[in-house]
Design a protein around this nucleic acid. Sequence first.
DNA 1: CAATATAGTTGGTACTTCCAATCATCTCAA
DNA 2: TTGAGATGATTGGAAGTACCAACTATATTG
Lengths: 153, 153
Amino acid sequence: MATSNPEARPLSRGQVELIDAMVRASFVTMAVLTRTAAEHDLSLTQLRMLAILRDRQGAMSELADYLGLDRSTISGLVDRAEKRGLLRRTPNPLDGRGVDVALTSEGIELAHRGAEQIAQALSPMTRVLSRVEARRLVALLERMFGPDGAYEP
Amino acid sequence: MATSNPEARPLSRGQVELIDAMVRASFVTMAVLTRTAAEHDLSLTQLRMLAILRDRQGAMSELADYLGLDRSTISGLVDRAEKRGLLRRTPNPLDGRGVDVALTSEGIELAHRGAEQIAQALSPMTRVLSRVEARRLVALLERMFGPDGAYEP
DNA sequence: CAATATAGTTGGTACTTCCAATCATCTCAA
DNA sequence: TTGAGATGATTGGAAGTACCAACTATATTG
């Protein structure tokens, strides 16, 4: 499956270096996130789900779209989080098939603490940059990946 | 588990923005990696293992250290990859307990194709930056995360 | 209103990951 | 030099993640 190169354009040396650096940086970042999540007995996916539900609440299927996961996966994910008291299912009043999901106050609190702790865990790295460098880096990352919440590519 | 803040130092607005941007960028990057790996029926961990073994081969325990995983996890990971013909176990001649792992030619080829394909998949993003910007971004990422192969934090 | 589409759940499979226990081998100190 | 403990790897058991296929119940539409 996947024939080698449907239409491979050659990459410059600089491009490759940037890709390597970005991949490395992402692995380190994700390792920090995973470790932090684990300290609260959360998987990375669970933590991400909390982060998403902190801002916007809604239907199971929306959650599936945001997370890029199958609906059946969401069922299990929500099951376990609900059993822990982090969120609640409520039937959608407008659509008899639909189920809405919202964080409990406990879930909100955990989402906040998690975010705070991730920031603390990453700050030793971000602190090595000066204010100007940090701003420059943010600008470059946003150029590459889009300015906001576009979690999916 | 994990009392709120052992020693939380407040973060500046700029710090927080950088952390958010970095986390977002990492999620997008990892999603690309995961998708690319899946196209070859590989998990992200498997792909990472191949990438590591492409450069340096060695003992199971070294692999565990590089990947930051328990040794028992490595056993299973290597089992499945070996069954697929991607790598081979050989007893370490100097230590009767040790087992060394090395990619087969098939594994090497897959690792190469994977890396190439990831680069292609990420290049639409990296291409939006000019040569100078790309170089600047690499420099900033390396300042933050260390210059090389330090996959672990 | 019947046909079809959609929302969510369930069951099955495969994989990841951990921990605890085990086996073999190695190392070191009495 | 041998016996106690350390180390390398595997196994088994458990819980979680994630997919697909099949199903139920409700909506939508021709």
